[in-house]
Amino acid sequence: MPVIHSATSFVKIGMGHSGFYSPGTKGRIRRDGLAVADTLLVARRMPQPDMTAQKTDQAEIDRLNDLTSRVARQRDRQAFVALFQHFAPRLKSFLLRAGMEAGAAEETIQDVMVTVWHRAESFDPAQAAVSTWIFAIARNRRIDRLRRDRRPTIDPNDPALVPDEADGSMETMLVEERAAELHRAIRELPPEQADLLRMAYFEDKAHSAIAAERQLPLGTVKSRLRLAVARLRKLMAGSLEGETA
């Protein structure tokens, strides 16, 4: 069934950006309504955030950002090597879980990292975290390699594109901060949701195939994934409430 998004969905902030989100204007308008009740409920149930882990996340995100901008601006090979050392093992795991053979996975890692080198200038830290940018490059390469079909995408310059609503009034929550929140929120997911979420991203499988593998009804897989995404939104919204209070 079609779904009308609730107030606590991802809403981008800032001008013309779609790479980040917050419980933006829509959430705020409805702060007297159900959305707030939901958020508070979740905030109360939430375990105390592990501040040390969160600071480590933040430091790591800042470091990766800095490395990428050194590659972009100074063509800094040492910074590139550090990016490789961080991402190559993770990409290998990502590609092997998608069913690639080790050789093909390493060739794909080469392609991804060489693309990172060539396209570093197009990386915009105001739009997304480095890991998000590299995830998207790796995902597209994986589709090329495994399926050989196309992934239809929008053209940002298309005259028929309905532009983003400008939310110039929103305070800008830095993308790096959002990314650190997301890391924490993922650690706090219930295990059965985290398991399916990892499968949905890492294994090149339709949700029906995931259902078969986990011996769950398709409806259960879909609803757990929806819950996981909704929960990540709420956990992030909850921690934002805490910060602004």
Binding site: A138, A179, L197
Partner: peptide, 8 residues
Amino acid sequence: EAIGGALL
């Protein structure tokens, strides 16, 4: 996509 990045 940001969730994908965080999982990675």
